[in-house]
């Protein structure tokens, strides 16, 4: 067992046991605060971000620095030879020869799988199109586990854009490794979960239901995982204005919920959560983002096979 030397393309590349071991390592790093380590001082991590990213890139960079390692890479393809027409596979071959592992974000689905086939060193998917975002799912699961002490037995809603948001699809897949009590899929009809994700839920026997509004289900929930509904997904701006209200998280809505209800969000958020929620006991998203560093530190040490 162990993640040493492995690629992480999808969250389903890991078992529940491997995730739990990862979370225990993350707990250790989190307990020790901002300590610096020399665990990866002989390692270089390549950060190949063909698409914009703030949190994923910076938290990987922070994680690697805390562990004593170095990072190389780029953010946005404009300043690289990709802009000159270089293929992804050629770029990956080059990075593979420079670095000991590669984190890749790309707007095409399947880019990380292709990179993993090309590279000899481990490839970590930092988001491929609308498909996977496994390290975000690790953070999401870790956050739920820290807040509730468990992931099993909870009522969890995924709300917003379930069709194109890779974070929502990836978390749905991740939850098939656990036993949530019930999964509520809340989205406008144009943005429902894709069939290939529902198929995995069905096969895993996860109980889920599909809803058009949070109002209908808020009283039953332990966790609301919110993703942003992007205006550009709607051909008609009027249509967007009509649906966006149904997915807006307000204090009034949350007050109808159970005690202990928590709101998670992969961030960035724009206006899908009322600002007043930020300072309420419901908001868990800033804490969630902060845990991105210890979780990614844990992942890197497991992939490099270093004892913590």
């Amino acid at each position: 067992m162990g993640l040493k030397g492995r690629d992480v393309v999808s969250i389903l590349d890991l078992t529940r046991g491997e995730l739990e071991a990862l979370f225990e390592t993350a707990d250790k790093f989190d307990r020790r605060g901002r300590a610096r380590y020399r665990l990866l001082e002989d390692k270089v991590l390549a950060l190949a971000f063909f698409e914009p990213s703030t949190r994923t890139r910076l938290s990987f960079e922070t994680a690697m620095k805390r562990l004593g390692g170095e990072t190389i890479g780029f953010a946005g393809a404009e300043a690289t030879s990709v802009a000159k027409g270089e293929s992804l596979t050629d770029t990956i071959r080059m990075l593979d020869s420079y670095a000991d592992a590669i984190v890749l974000r790309h707007r095409y689905e399947g880019a990380a799988k292709l990179a993993a086939e090309v590279a000899e060193n481990p490839v970590i998917n930092g988001g491929d199109g609308r498909q996977h975002h496994p390290t975000q799912s690790m953070i999401d699961l870790y956050t739920i586990r820290r807040l509730f002490g468990t992931i099993d037995g909870l009522n969890i809603a995924l709300a917003g854009d379930l069709r194109y948001a890779r974070t929502a699809a990836s978390l749905a897949l991740a939850l098939t490794l656990f036993r949530p009590r019930h999964l509520y899929l809340v989205s406008p009809p144009q943005l429902t979960m894709r069939p290939e994700v529902l198929r995995v839920l069905d096969e895993a026997g996860v109980r889920y239901s599909v809803h058009g509004s949070l109002d209908d289900v808020v009283e039953e929930l332990d966790v609301i995982y919110v993703t942003r509904i992007q205006k550009e997904r709607f051909p008609d701006p009027m249509e967007y204005e009509k649906v966006r209200g149904s997915y807006r998280i307000t204090l009034d809505l949350l007050k109808k919920g159970r005690k202990g209800l928590k709101v998670l969000h992969p961030l960035p958020k724009v206006d899908e959560i009322e600002l007043a929620v930020d300072h309420s006991e419901y908001a868990a998203y800033f804490q969630q983002a902060a845990w991105g560093v210890p979780v990614r530190m844990a992942l890197l040490t497991h992939i490099f096979g270093v004892e913590v």
Binding site: G85, E86, S87, L88, T89, H106, R107, Y108, E109, G110, A111, K113, L114, D128, G129, R130
Partner: peptide
């Protein structure tokens, strides 16, 4: 059939 599948990218030999 997915236009944003990496296998549809004309740059890649996949």
């Amino acid at each position: 059939p997915n236009p944003t599948c990496i296998t549809r990218s004309s740059r890649e030999d996949v």
